[in-house]
């Protein structure tokens, strides 16, 4: 073997080791069935609260559904993003088209690990980057509640993403860089209400997904937590909701809680855009939980 041959062999070996290391470090890491073997009895009422806090209907109900029809999680929405168009799937309890045959461990793997039923990486259009904060008990309760909803046999489209975003293997790298369960802000001496608010906002409520700016690869700029961002769906902006926000900054905690309940700002302008769906969901929460969200939003660093 000549010098060239040896050099080539070395390169191939380095390449193979590198690829192996990449695949190992970025492998999907679902839960195993035993992780949830002793999950305990679900609290369906709490599951319903998590369902509204999590905003499942905003993406998974049929786009034109109103009222009770929103409880049919048939999918059907086209979710536009700078990376392509995502089609949130049918997550109704239908055994074939939906998630009726899923186990709790599989559901938790999707919600908290970003791993699909076939062991594949999921796109963070499913905000597991936020749901990762959810407690196992809340995941259990949510799953139990969703089992009580109507079935739909609707089959949704595959995500429509251009190269290179259509390569799921690359998602492992993205998760390696950006996916963690760190608190998004560290708040010393937080009251119980602020802690509850932090859980709801950073976890199920996934507020940061739209309200926090992202870098060119779609990772959060966590140093600008909830500081506002361009509208991912097109024109316009998603506002800064920290105490430094031009609009929301002056609102009292009471104002924020009233807005989440009624959809009206302190000067009786109304909620608009994608926030309308979010506000309708938040209106289902308890008054205490809305107050907790407000307390947290007043406690975070101003931007």
């Amino acid at each position: 073997m000549g010098r060239f041959g040896r050099a080539l062999t070395t390169l191939v070996v380095i390449g193979a080791v590198g690829a192996g290391a990449y695949l190992y470090l970025t492998r999907p890491q679902p839960y195993t069935e035993s992780d949830f073997a002793e999950a305990g009895e679900p609290d369906i009422k709490n599951g319903e609260m998590m369902f509204w806090a999590g905003g499942c209907v905003s993406c998974h109900a049929s786009p034109d559904a109103e009222g009770d029809a929103q409880l049919v999680l048939s999918g059907g929405l086209a979710l536009k993003s700078p990376f392509g168009t995502f089609y949130p799937p049918n997550i109704s309890p239908d055994p074939d088209a939906g998630i009726g045959n899923w186990t709790l461990a599989e559901f938790a793997s999707a919600m908290k690990r970003g791993v699909g039923r076939n062991g594949e990486h999921l796109y963070p259009s499913l905000p597991y980057t936020s749901y990762v904060h959810m407690s196992d008990a809340d995941i259990r309760d949510l799953f139990a509640y969703m089992k009580t909803l109507p079935k739909s046999s609707n089959v949704t489209a595959e995500h429509d993403l251009p190269f290179p975003f259509n390569i799921r293997l690359a998602l492992g790298g993205w998760k390696f860089l950006y996916f963690n369960d760190n608190p998004r802000v560290v708040l010393s001496d937080a009251s119980e209400a602020v802690k509850r608010g932090q859980y709801l906002v950073e976890g199920p409520g996934h507020c940061g997904e739209c309200h926090t700016p992202r870098d060119f690869l779609g990772g959060w700029k966590t140093s600008e937590w909830l500081a506002g961002a361009p509208n991912p769906e097109g024109e316009g902006v998603v506002p800064n909701i920290t105490p430094g926000g031009a609009e929301v900054g002056d609102w009292s905690a009471k104002d924020i809680a009233y807005y989440l309940e009624s959809g009206f700002t302190p000067d009786f302008d109304s909620v608009g855009g994608s926030m309308v769906e979010v506000q309708r969901n938040m209106a289902h929460l308890t008054a205490e939980d809305r107050e907790a969200i407000a307390a947290y939003l007043k406690a975070i660093p101003a931007h």
């Binding site: 316009g236 998603v238 009624s262 959809g263 009206f264 109304s270 909620v271 608009g272 309308v276 769906e277």
Partner: peptide, 15 residues
């Protein structure tokens, strides 16, 4: 109220 938010959902762009 739902008239306000319903219309602003589709037809108002926050700038």
């Amino acid at each position: 109220g739902p008239n306000c938010s319903g219309c602003h959902e589709k037809y108002r762009l926050k700038k």
